[in-house]
């Protein structure tokens, strides 16, 4: 079965976080996270709780550390040799920086969708089953089920069900991005990280992805980096504003977009700098 497993105990909330979080489970708890690329510090004392089954948007000008931040959530930044980090990131109560922590496990639980759709040059079907096959699933019937469920989850099934054997490169940009989301869903993640997933898409495809994100949050916790302020306002429950590696403000999206507390947040979201 492809049911999502979320049986980790609740993470205790820090009082500094918002009031709603008291009744909400968090998938992540980030504490005093610092990150350097060589001598350049890209993240400074980041503290953030990321709630379960919500969409958390990360906004901020180019170079503020938002992409770096979400890449640390599944330890992708450590693939860059000059990166150095300290602090803690608890995913479901376990510090992912622990030496014994299995990064492979983390990456099956935390899927990622990138800015540019990056399907494999294989059939639509093969793209979706790639992950499950690596995880040892060989039964054709199970794989067929995974394909249908994942493509349905990514709102792509109706458009491609009759041409699953065709090459994924023949799909439109928006369809390719939804295929990447389906590929991500196929490994039954708990969290989906999205790094500007619509910046290469036209407005209609963008809206489709946005609607999809709203549907997906019922079953997954989503963290999305976006340059599009309206998009953050439309689809997220919480928004974090990053500037020069620091979290300037993190609150309910409604608060950030109606009465932000920090002038820098206000200036950024109203387009006065960045």
């Amino acid at each position: 079965m492809l049911a999502n497993t979320k049986n980790a105990p609740a993470v205790e909330n820090s009082p500094a976080q918002n009031k709603e979080a008291v009744n909400k489970k968090n998938v992540y708890k980030v504490e005093q996270l610092n990150l350097w690329y060589g001598k350049d510090q890209a993240l400074i004392n980041v503290n953030m709780d990321i709630p379960e089954n919500e969409v958390t948007a990360i906004i901020g000008p180019s170079g503020c550390g938002k992409s770096t931040f979400i890449k640390t959530l599944n330890r992708m930044t450590e693939m860059i040799p000059i990166v150095k980090t300290n602090g803690s990131i608890y995913y479901r109560n376990e510090n992912i920086f622990n030496k014994k922590y299995q990064v492979e496990y983390l990456r099956t639980k935390v899927g990622m969708v990138f800015q540019k759709p990056n399907p494999f040059p294989k059939s639509i079907y093969e793209n979706v089953v790639y992950g499950p096959k690596i995880h040892g699933i060989k039964d054709k019937k199970v794989l067929d089920e995974v394909v249908e469920k994942s493509l349905k989850g990514a709102a792509l099934w109706d458009e491609v069900k009759d041409r699953l054997k065709e090459n994924a490169m023949g799909l439109s940009g928006g369809q390719q991005q939804r295929l990447c989301i389906a590929r991500c869903l196929a490994i039954e993640p708990d969290v989906i990280l999205m790094d500007e997933p619509t910046s290469a898409l036209d407005p209609i495809s963008t809206l489709k992805i946005e609607e999809l994100v709203q549907d997906l949050k019922k079953d997954y916790s989503i963290v999305i980096v976006t340059h599009n302020m309206q998009q953050a306002g439309r689809i997220s429950d919480k928004t974090a504003f990053f500037l020069n590696g620091e979290v300037i403000e993190y609150d309910d999206t409604a608060t950030i977009f109606s009465s932000p507390q920090d002038k820098r947040t206000e200036d950024y979201i109203s387009g006065r700098f960045g």
């Binding site: 109606s258 009465s259 206000e266 979201i269």
Partner: peptide
């Protein structure tokens, strides 16, 4: 302009 924050208010 899709104003937000003070601009919206």
């Amino acid at each position: 302009q899709q104003p937000v924050a003070t601009d919206l208010r």
